[in-house]
Amino acid sequence: MQHLSQAEWTAILLSLRVGIVATLVATPIGIALAWLLARREFWGKSLIDAVIHLPLVLPPVVTGYLLLLTFGRRGLVGEWLADHLGIVFAFRWTGAALACGIMSFPLLVRPIRLSIEAVDRRFEQAAATLGAPPWRVFWTVTLPLALPGVLAGMVLGFAKAIGEFGATITFVSNIPGETQTISAAIYTLTQVPDGDAAALRLVVISIVIAMAALVASEVFVRRATRRLHGT
């Protein structure tokens, strides 16, 4: 296989950065929402659940367009963020991370929610009788026991984020070096006459990244699960 060109490297590194940032920012929010959905009854719970899952069922281009309307330079939130905090999403890699984070969010939340639901509440009761207030029960018992699900959710979310295409290209376009991820680069290469070899190289790279993520998650989850069985 030929060596990767500078442009291809740029797309690969950008994809990794976008995927990692999207996952790291989405994880704490995902854990909080997963806990709420798993352990609390409140008004509007099914609405929140539906909104989280919306990116899974909407056409990605719709999600991307909604993001553009909301977080674009003239968008409701985007304008305020740019004027007051100097944060710009439109046509930046941060916008790509936002789009990928939202698109991958349902896949990240689901395993975390399931694993929190599976945590035996009798351990949480035992912790309470030992003097742990609810938030410390969460940090010292619930979250560690749900860790395999958290890791699985993170890997799934990362894999989805790194492969996201439709919402990203609609929201932040396809700018080499700024918003051109692997998927966008492959798309561009398939549109030019002699792009096949380069496109194939990137295809192989994305397969390798996806496989590595799956293997890593398998190892982490197995290790964390073994810990939970107390052996």
Partner: peptide, 20 residues
């Protein structure tokens, strides 16, 4: 008074040692 402020110890039939 919630359980965590009672200072009442509890030994359960199923021990409930934290597995992690």
């Amino acid at each position: 008074t919630p359980a965590h402020r009672r200072r009442i110890g509890y030994v359960f039939q199923d021990a409930r040692l934290f597995p992690h």
